[in-house]
Amino acid sequence: MHASTNGKIPKVSIIISKGSLEGIYPGLIMANGARMEGIEANIFFTFFGLEAIMKKRWNKIKVATVGNPAMHIPSLIGILPGMSAIATKMMMKEMDKLDIPPIPEFIEMVHDAGANLYACKATVDMFHLTKDDFCEQVEDIINVGKFYELAAGGEIIFT
C-alpha cells in the first residue's frame, strides 16, 4: 500500500490523453467521483485530450465508430458520413438519463466540485495554442515536472 492514509486515497491525478467521447468521459467521471468522496482531484489534459477543454472543440466531441470493435459496427459502415454523429447522439441520450452531463457542463461541474484542471504545455506548444483557446475552468498550462509535483502524495491514473 502506498500514498494512502487509513486505507483512503487522499488524492488522484488523472491524465486524459484521448479526444474521443469514450476517451474523455471515464477520466471526468473518475475525477468527479473522487470529489464526491472527498478525495482531492487534478485533471491533466494532454495530446488530443485537450479537445475537452477547448472552447471551439468541447461541444463537438464524438465517439469513434472506426477501429473500435466493441461498437459492433463493421468498419466499412463505421466510415460512412454521419455514423459517428449518430452513435454519439445515441450515447449522449443514454448518458443524460443517468444525469451524466455533456462535456462543457461536465467540465464546469467537476471544476465547481473542486477539481483542478490543467493543460499540458508540450501539447499546447506543439499545436500552437494559447490560454485563450481554453475554457475559463483551466487553472494553468503546466509541464510534466509540475504535474508530478502536483500529483505528489496521491495516485496517478492515465486514460
Binding site: 464526491m36 472527498g38 444525469d99 452531463p101 465547481d112
Partner: peptide
C-alpha cells in the same frame, strides 16, 4: 444527483460542496 440538485433544485455545485464538504450527495 449533484447535477439534478443544481439544474432542478437550484443549488449551485460549488455551494453544495461548501454546505456538505467532502461528499455532498452522500
Amino acid at each position: 444527483t449533484v447535477r439534478r440538485i443544481k439544474n432542478v433544485g437550484g443549488i449551485p455545485t460549488k455551494e453544495l460542496y461548501e454546505l456538505f464538504p467532502e461528499g455532498p450527495a452522500k
